[in-house]
């Protein structure tokens, strides 16, 4: 295809991506270097019936005028990146100097909002991904043995947790495990503790979120493995059987090697998806116990009266860097494949 024709074909798509993905990244980077204006205070004399006193008051007009003049705020350089809410260099340094053991240092570290979020995101990813792969493979192997007539309906039901809106799916689970919900109330009765609440304890909240993660992602790995199982040649399986392999051995030495590329694919997709865990934290109203980087950005934008663009921008840039690091193996591999194809 000629360069000119290519250009006209790709133009609408390219323009959309340039203006609404590439430019916003630049805009986020610029924003992250600024912070909000300080509110301008004026001294006002407040006279009551007995005496007059001077108090400091926010000069709304002057603050608004300043905001109008420079909507980005004050220039702050990399200050936002290093402050307590983000990378917290100073606090980390202090914690490093003052703590004796690595364990103590870690417990200091996860009190800082950014590291707390990072810690949850990484734990979530590290626990959910293997569960999703094993459970998905198990379900796929089991469904594959079913008679043809029930396979369709089973796949239909299995798709639901993944297809449904994440916010809604998480809410549905939350209403069940909430203190008054069916699972929550039953647990209270089993443990005979009327105050037992999954929301109140950090480990239980994390467990709830991880259970949601497994529930909503298993269908994806199930479908991929199930499609993969259809491509395993039955001759190979049969040959293994004739050579005396047990059922387990056939799965272990014939099926699983066929599935390995799929395991890599699912792991990568899971890493990407789990890294942006966000909606379940909103639905479970779990933000006091578990936060993620995406939640921090959302909270900066929607949480308070003032939108903290600088803070949100800094977290966004750090998140984008994280994604880039996570993706680099894939990019390198695709680059090699591409060169091999051209050669």
């Amino acid at each position: 295809m000629k360069h000119r024709t290519f250009f006209w074909f790709i133009l609408p798509s390219l323009a959309a991506m340039f203006f609404f993905i590439a430019l916003p990244i630049v805009s986020v980077a610029v924003q992250s270097l600024f912070v909000e204006h300080e509110q301008i205070m004026t001294e006002v004399e407040n006279c009551g019936p007995f005496k007059c006193e001077t108090v400091l008051q926010v000069d709304t007009e002057a603050t608004a005028a300043l905001q109008e003049e420079a909507p980005l705020g004050r220039f702050n350089g990399l200050g936002t990146y290093t402050n307590r809410k983000h990378l917290a260099f100073k606090e980390v340094g202090v914690a490093w100097d003052e703590t004796e053991t690595l364990g103590e240092f870690m417990s200091e570290l996860i009190n800082l909002p950014f590291y707390k979020a990072l810690f949850f995101t990484l734990t979530y990813t590290a626990v959910v991904t293997p569960f999703v792969i094993f459970l998905g493979l198990g379900v796929a192997l089991a469904v594959n043995t079913l008679p043809r007539i029930v396979k369709g309906p089973t796949i239909f039901v299995s798709l639901l947790p993944m297809i449904v809106t994440p916010l809604i799916g998480a809410l549905i689970l939350f209403w069940m495990v909430d203190a008054d919900g069916i699972i929550g109330a039953t647990l209270q009765r089993i443990f005979n503790d009327p105050n037992l609440s999954l929301k109140a304890s950090t480990p239980l909240t994390w467990m709830m979120l991880i259970v949601y993660g497994i529930w909503s992602s298993t269908p994806f790995s199930f479908i991929v493995f199930y499609a993969g199982l259809q491509t395993v040649p039955s001759e190979t399986l049969e040959a293994a059987k004739i050579d005396g392999a047990s059922r387990w051995q056939a799965i272990r030495y014939v099926v699983v090697p066929y599935m390995m590329p799929l395991v890599v694919f699912i792991t990568l997709m899971q890493l990407m998806d789990n890294f942006r865990v966000f909606e379940p934290i909103i639905s479970f109203s779990a933000s006091a116990k578990a936060t993620s980087l995406s939640w921090i950005i959302f909270n900066d934008l929607r949480g308070g009266d003032i939108q903290l663009f600088g803070s949100a921008g800094a977290t966004s840039i750090l998140t984008i860097l994280g994604v880039a690091i996570l993706l680099s193996p894939v990019l390198i591999r695709t680059w090699r494949d591409f060169n091999r194809k051209r050669a």
């Binding site: 290519f6 991506m17 986020v28 980005l72 890294f275 950005i297 966004s316 680059w335």
Partner: peptide
Amino acid sequence: SGFRYAFWLLMAGLVFRAMPHITLVSGYLL
């Protein structure tokens, strides 16, 4: 198109796709 820039566009697309949407949202608001 077998040209090299087509590949780079696809790669950029892959990176954009992996980014959490909320990171872009803060860039739109102002």
